[in-house]
Amino acid sequence: MPFPAPLTGVVPPLCTPLTPEGEVDVPSLLRLVDHLLAGGVHGLFVLGSTSEAAYLTDRQRGLVVEAVAGQVGGRLPVLAGAIDMTTPRVLDHVRAVTKAGADAVVVAAPFYTRTHPAEIARHYRLVAAGSPVPVVAYDIPSAVHTKLPGEVVLELAAEGVLAGLKDSSGDLAGFRAVVSGARTDPRITGFSVLTGSETIVDAALAVGGDGAVPGLANVDPHGYVRLDGLCRTGEFEQARVEQERLCALFGMVGVGDPARMGGSSSALGAFKAALHLRGIIDCPVTAAPQVPLSGDEVESVGKFLERAGLL
């Protein structure tokens, strides 16, 4: 099922603000939605990696979708992750998030067990057959340990199974191949190809991508919307300058000490610390068992914000 109109522009993957007790902080979540809407974004994506969906209970996942969809009120499309190990479990999530108000679902390949490309394709066909809303493929090999083959994505797009691709693989050549294939195959219409990589948005748009799903847009939505606009008007030198500013800001994801925490803890902790320092969310806590940033590391995040003119 395709989107009513192709999905384009900046579609931030929302952080999920939490209370010190680990519950969803709905008032902070709604302020974050308003912050992103004020930044001019073109859609919202909840329950992805940046949302810490893997750490949330099913009850918390439903609460996030209901809160965000209610606050948006149909002004922008709300995409929700339906991410789990197997097809039946994904279909359970599809039913839950669409009931809660999602306009589309974002689905990764099956994981835990190794799957053949034919099984991955069957997974998406079965999910699409059971979904009342468009299905976007989520290429995130760092999480599911499978790179979605471009030829499988294009085959499913031609069948009308997939409405789009969120490519978080960092493989610009593979991204370009999907963009080119979708553009030249007359069977494929209305298919959106979005990069999930914060640091190559200008390059992804230059090769014909439709938009971006950058986690850093939580912190600086105006910057990514500005970058998107510059690329669309062909002002690529100004776009390069803006992209480089955002690349420098993205350096905040490395503030955490790798001797005591993983890269995900550092990156998500930095995004939440930045949102807290900017007064958008009440608490920068990340979900257990992730390790929180230290006071010195939070101070380093503040310096990144200052250099970017955001604090």
Rank of each mutant, 00 (worst) to 15 (best):
D34C: 05
K99N: 13
P284S: 09
L44T: 13
G234W: 02
D139S: 14
L311A: 15
D92L: 10
R114D: 15
D282N: 15
N218A: 05
D92P: 04
R114F: 00
P27F: 00
L63G: 03
R95F: 00
G295V: 05
D58I: 02
R240P: 06
E66W: 05
T98N: 08
C247A: 10
L194S: 11
V193T: 07
V65E: 01
E21D: 15
A53D: 06
P134N: 02
P20K: 07
L310E: 14
D257G: 06
K166T: 03
V241P: 08
P289A: 05
P20V: 13
F45Q: 03
R176G: 15
L36K: 09
A54I: 06
D202H: 15
D84W: 12
T50P: 11
P110C: 10
A273H: 09
L37W: 05
L14C: 11
T195S: 14
L76F: 00
G208K: 10
D58N: 14
L249E: 08
V298C: 13
V90Q: 02
G43Y: 02
V161W: 14
A38I: 01
G81P: 11
L79E: 00
H93F: 04
V219F: 02
R187Q: 05
S192Q: 12
C15W: 03
R95W: 00
S180R: 12
D167V: 05
V106L: 13
L44E: 10
F111A: 01
F175Q: 04
T113E: 13
G234S: 04
G223A: 02
S51M: 04
P284G: 13
V72W: 00
G269P: 10
G170I: 04
C247Q: 10
S28Q: 12
R75Q: 15
V41N: 08
D220R: 14
G211N: 14
Y112N: 09
E297T: 09
V97H: 00
V298L: 15
G164A: 04
V285C: 07
S266M: 08
A80R: 00
G302N: 14
G48I: 00
G263H: 04
F191Q: 11
I281S: 06
V178M: 04
D220N: 15
S300L: 14
L47T: 06
